[in-house]
Amino acid sequence: MAHDVDRLPPFNRWLPFLTLFNKEILRFLRVASQTLITPIITASLYLFVFGATLGDRISVLEGFSYAQFVIPGLILMGVINNSFANTASSLFMSRYLGNVVDLLVTPITPPQFIMAYTLAAMLRGLAVGCAVWAISTVFAGLPWVHPGAAIVMATLASFLFAQFGLIVAIIANDFDALSMYTNFLILPLIYLGGVFYPISILPPLWAKLSHLNPLFYLIDGFRHAILGVGDLSFVVAFGVVAAMATALFSIAALLIGKGYRLRS
């Protein structure tokens, strides 16, 4: 028995993970016009509209221009959308085309599987976020009051939505279902989560309802870390986001660990 294993090439236990991680990066770089350039251009258009045109006429937060208010939200929007899209589209396409079996027959472990997809998605999301921030400097500078906290919040946001993307990729039955999560769930939650306005200016009922929106905690926490002010304390925002990330990671780990809809 051992004889046959001895005859195998040497096994590097981290190589399956590194290969999948590398493959996922290559995948989104191969279609960079869709995965990187398009979201950066979209965010740039928002920046132009709110930074160079309407921004001067709107004021929502004392001591800050509207551009300064909206930029953290736009950065985070780029992070969230792209982290989600990367895992969701990549794993769903693998399921749809059937080439996910290429992974199922290998010695890759479920944690390696999850982390390879997740880290590649985080890399894409954070790369888009950095690009949006770099372009935003043309329109307005940011004070970066707590840069470490801002980085933690953006990292958590990308992690959280990478997990959500994995879950959606597994439970979605077709392309319509996949786009439904993007268009009818994530997009409204982002827009209603305080990217373009502070929740505090809403009527009390809507302000209370906004607290049910998980994206509100992410956006407010990130903005709080950058501008030093927000609707919530950073600790509360961080706590809620960390709890959500843990919950979604647990669900993704459970689904992938059991091979739900991956193994028949």
Binding site: P9, P10, F11, N12, R13, W14, L15, P16, L18, T19, L20, N22, K23, L26, D102, L103, T106, P107, I108
Partner: peptide
């Protein structure tokens, strides 16, 4: 060529 290298890597085998 790339796909073969990737598949070897999935199995923890350095490309030969």
């Amino acid at each position: 060529e790339r796909a073969l290298k990737i598949h070897a890597g999935y199995f923890g085998v350095v490309d030969d």
